[in-house]
């Protein structure tokens, strides 16, 4: 018993950090930071670099949160980008119709109405996803593949592939403004990540999501209304995509049916890198944030080194394989 206790302590600490992935990711983050600091030098620590990193991360971050929710339940949400674009277009459409004045209550109210309309659309898509997955029993990858194509179809059909642009200042501030030097988009990301973390780790709903991800049938037989939980989960996932839409359209000052399509598989990459089990049941918001910082740091560093963004993509893929292989390699070493 005596010689066992230090080991169990280590495993316990490891578990509380997210089952070893957090340790691996922290190690990776620190070593990458040291390497980039040595190679790039001072420029890597400049305010500009840090700020541009903080501007770029939130979009992918919020979308990854949306993907993570679905992944935790053992599902997948391929429709997040299409949802975001349709939401963005809805907000943009309302905003650019009739803006009453350029300040005052009506002006603010109209903007809030536009955003509300966008979230209404996002919520509706979430309801369709949730209903088809939870109540009709369609596999999530197929259901969301369908809604993805459908949403994209509506967006392309209505806009004919054109861009809607020209938004009032408060909207643009969401994507480009700073508060005490901190990009507002990063604040929005924090305002998403913290509630999601609390929802997952400190509420019965979160516990049910993890249980469904581990074993849906057992969860249902233990008296949980798994269908209601899944429905809610996909609505939340859609709403997060809606927040991402707001940040994205504000940053580009425009909305389009095809923005950010290359993000779709990258959100899976980020979530899985952050320790989210692609078959559900395991994963923490903290791990996802670490993964996002790692991905963003590589991207920014390569940018400073004038290396191609496509090389960044390749390195991201390589890191995903390396991190995913760690548990198996560790088991091999132990043997």
């Amino acid at each position: 018993m005596k010689e066992k206790s230090p080991l169990s302590l280590v495993t316990r600490i490891g578990r509380s950090l997210g089952g070893g992935t957090m340790g691996t990711l922290t190690l990776l983050l620190v070593s990458l930071w040291v390497v980039f600091a040595l190679v790039i030098g001072e420029r890597f620590f400049s305010v500009n670099t840090l700020q541009s990193m903080a501007f770029q991360m939130p979009e992918l971050g919020i979308l990854s949160l949306a993907m993570m929710l679905a992944l935790l339940s053992g599902g997948l949400n391929l429709s997040i980008i299409a949802t975001a674009n349709l939401t963005g277009l809805t907000i943009a459409f309302v905003l650019t119709r009739t803006v009453p004045g350029s300040e005052g209550m009506a002006w603010v109210g109209w903007q809030l109405l536009a955003i509300a309309a966008g979230f209404g659309v996002a919520g509706l898509i979430g309801l369709v996803n949730g209903y088809v997955i939870a109540y009709l029993g369609v596999s999530p990858i197929l259901a969301t593949l369908g809604t993805m194509t459908l949403c994209k179809g509506i967006a392309i059909g209505l806009t004919r592939g054109n861009v809607i642009s020209g938004f009032p200042d408060p909207i643009i501030f969401i994507g480009n403004g700073t508060i005490f030097g901190v990009p507002f988009a990063l604040v929005v990301f924090a305002l998403c990540a913290v509630p999601v973390a609390i929802l997952l780790n400190a509420t019965p709903f979160g516990a049910k999501v993890y249980m469904i991800g581990s074993n849906e049938k057992a969860t249902r037989y233990s008296g949980v209304d798994t269908r209601a939980v899944l429905l809610r989960l996909y609505v939340y996932s859609s709403l997060l995509a809606g927040v991402a839409a707001l940040v994205m359209m504000a940053r580009f000052n425009s909305a389009n049916a095809a923005y950010g399509e290359s993000y779709l598989l990258v959100t899976i990459l980020a979530a899985v890198l952050g320790g989210v089990d692609p078959f559900g049941g395991f994963g923490k918001v903290g791990g996802l944030i670490l993964a996002l910082v790692i991905l963003q740091m590589i991207s920014s560093a390569f940018n400073l080194l004038n290396l191609s963004q496509f090389l960044t993509l390749a390195i991201w893929g390589g890191i995903l394989i390396a991190v995913a292989a760690v548990p198996h390699l560790r088991a091999l070493l132990r043997r």
């Binding site: 990258v266 899985v272 692609p278 993509l313 390749a314 893929g317 390589g318 394989i321």
Partner: peptide, 14 residues
């Protein structure tokens, strides 16, 4: 699924 998401990025990026 993880492998092919990763290799898609690796093959294409390179």
């Amino acid at each position: 699924i993880i492998v092919s998401v990763a290799t898609l990025n690796i093959f294409y990026g390179l």
